[in-house]
Structure formats: structure tokens, C-alpha cells
């Protein structure tokens, strides 16, 4: 723009012009989903299509975030852009909360409505009388047909309690790291950020051990009736989110090592931190409603 001076431009909201990453993303997600569907349908080349799509998705993330990071380093982002990223991240996390809400809702319904009904309590007690005579309502349960066979559950105050401690302390370490970043103490920042993702990976490791234990020794599986369904779907999606969060933390840590972020401008760091806290809070809900009560 002929009359636009640089000072003016700097205050401007940065609008990227044309980007190949979104279309790469859309195409790779299409391929990945097509592959996943073929895989589920037992089509021979399904896995190949799926993994090809998956690799392309990773490539897209790498390229897209790479672009954003270099634009950021080039100083193209003003406070307005920063605010957009923040708001975007917040609402994204909110959508994740609602995703988990669906599964928590299912848990609530099974425990307080459907299982009691099948067991002869509440307004639909007739279901028990006519269809499931011998079924005693209980929680945990794999239903009147004992789907998946007898199973045992994982006590709350074993591994899960340790995992709770791990995640809670990772919430503390990331906060310390954040304060260090704001205070410009890079050393503390690096250490505590590393501690955070190490705690995260430890959590994932323990969770994997727990799953292994459940599958091999307790006969507790995804197919263990509605208990197994809600248990594994809730903890499973949570575990997936922890894994993703931990990977994001590693990326942020690498960026810190490269000298990115200033005490004032470090949206990426904060975004990941929020995400990490969200994962933390979901875990507390899980610990209380899935393992404990």
C-alpha cells in the first residue's frame, strides 16, 4: 500500500496470504479416515492407507506449525493476533471439555439409571421382572448378560493414586516453569518444563502398565459390559490427551532450548499450559467418578 508506513503496518492485524497447509491437512485427514474405515471393514490395504494418511497429517502439523513459528519469530504477530490465538485455544479446550462431557454423561446414565432399571429398581423395574430376572444391580457391572465374563476392577488407591500425584505435581512444575519464563529465568524454565513432560510420560507409562494388568490379569477389557466401556473410553481418551499434551510440551521445550519466547510474548507456552491443566482437571474427574466412587 503506497501510503502505508511501516509503523502503521506493525500495528496491523497479520493476515496470511494463501497457505498450502490447510488443503494438505484436509486431504490427509480424508485419506486417514478413509484408511481407518477400510481398516475397520477389513479391507486389505486399509492399514496402508491409514498410516499414509496419518504420516501426511503429521507432516501437515509440522509444516503448519513451522510456518506459524517462523512468522511469529519474524515479528509478524501483534497483540491482536496473540489475543486471537488465546481465544481460539480457550474455545478449543472448551470443545474438548464437551467431548468428555458426553462420556461422563454416559457414565452417569449407566450408573444411576440403566443399571438400576435392569436390576429392578426405579421406574423401569419391570425390565428386570420380565427380562432379566436374576440380575442384581451393582456397580461395577458388565450387565445382566455378564458381557465379557467376570472381571475385577482397579482399586483407586494403587496406581491411579500415584498417577493422580504425578499429574498434580506436573501441574505445579508447569506453573513454576511459567513463572520462571515470566521472570526470565531460562534455566529454571528448562528444568521444570522438562520435569513436566517427564511426569506426563511417566503417567502414560503407568497407565499403559495398568491397562496391561487389566487385560491380562483382571479380565477387565473394553468389552466388559458398560463398566469396561465407560472405564476404557474415559481413561483411554484421557490418556490420548495426556500423550498429545506431553508431546506438545516437548515441542515447547525444544523451542525454549532454541531461545524462543520472551517474558511478555509466549502464547504457545501458555496454550500448552492451559491444555495441560485441562488434562489435569479431567483426570481429577476420572479419579473421583471412575476409580474412587
Amino acid at each position: 500500500m503506497a501510503h502505508a508506513d511501516t509503523a502503521h503496518d506493525a500495528g496491523k492485524y497479520y493476515i496470511p496470504h494463501g497457505s498450502k497447509w490447510p488443503i494438505i491437512g484436509a486431504v490427509s485427514l480424508f485419506v486417514m479416515m478413509l484408511g481407518a474405515a477400510s481398516l475397520l471393514n477389513g479391507v486389505g490395504i486399509g492399514p496402508i492407507i491409514f498410516w499414509a494418511g496419518f504420516a501426511a497429517v503429521l507432516f501437515m502439523f509440522y509444516g503448519w506449525f513451522g510456518t506459524v513459528i517462523s512468522e511469529n519469530q519474524a515479528g509478524l504477530y501483534n497483540a491482536g493476533v496473540d489475543r486471537s490465538f488465546r481465544m481460539g485455544m480457550m474455545w478449543f479446550i472448551f470443545s474438548e471439555v464437551m467431548f468428555f462431557a458426553a462420556f461422563f454423561g454416559a457414565l452417569y446414565y449407566a450408573r444411576n439409571l440403566s443399571v438400576p432399571w435392569l436390576g429392578g429398581e426405579g421406574t423401569k423395574f419391570l425390565s428386570n421382572l420380565f427380562l432379566w430376572k436374576d440380575y442384581e444391580p451393582a456397580w461395577p457391572t458388565n450387565g445382566p448378560m455378564a458381557v465379557g465374563g467376570a472381571f475385577e476392577t482397579i482399586p483407586a488407591f494403587g496406581l491411579p493414586a500415584i498417577n493422580t500425584a504425578l499429574l498434580l505435581s506436573s501441574g505445579v512444575t508447569i506453573t513454576i516453569a511459567h513463572h520462571a519464563l515470566q521472570a526470565g529465568k531460562r534455566g529454571v524454565l528448562k528444568t521444570f518444563l522438562a520435569a513436566t513432560f517427564l511426569l506426563g510420560f511417566a503417567f502414560v507409562y503407568l497407565q499403559a502398565t495398568e491397562y496391561h494388568h487389566a487385560y491380562t490379569e483382571l479380565n477387565l477389557t473394553l468389552g466388559s459390559g458398560v463398566y469396561g466401556s465407560t472405564f476404557f473410553m474415559l481413561t483411554g481418551f484421557h490418556g490420548l490427551h495426556v500423550t498429545l499434551g506431553a508431546i506438545m510440551l516437548v515441542v515447547i521445550w525444544l523451542r525454549v532450548m532454541k531461545g524462543h519466547f520472551t517474558p511478555k510474548q509466549h502464547f504457545a507456552f501458555e496454550g500448552v499450559a492451559w491444555y495441560w491443566h485441562f488434562v489435569d482437571v479431567v483426570w481429577l474427574g476420572l479419579f473421583i467418578f471412575v476409580y474412587w466412587l
Partner: peptide, 28 residues
Amino acid sequence: PVFAGAVTMLLTDHFFHTTFFAAAGGGD
């Protein structure tokens, strides 16, 4: 996201032996 959750449960009921929506396993 709630809809996404619902159809995900359909998917696992179909392919991965969950019983969110089957009385036999305590679902509905």
C-alpha cells in the same frame, strides 16, 4: 463435540465390543 462423542460410542459398540447402548452389558 457431544455429537462426536455419541457417534464414537456407536463406533466402539460396533467394532470394539463396548455396550454403551446394549442392555445385555448394562447399557441402554
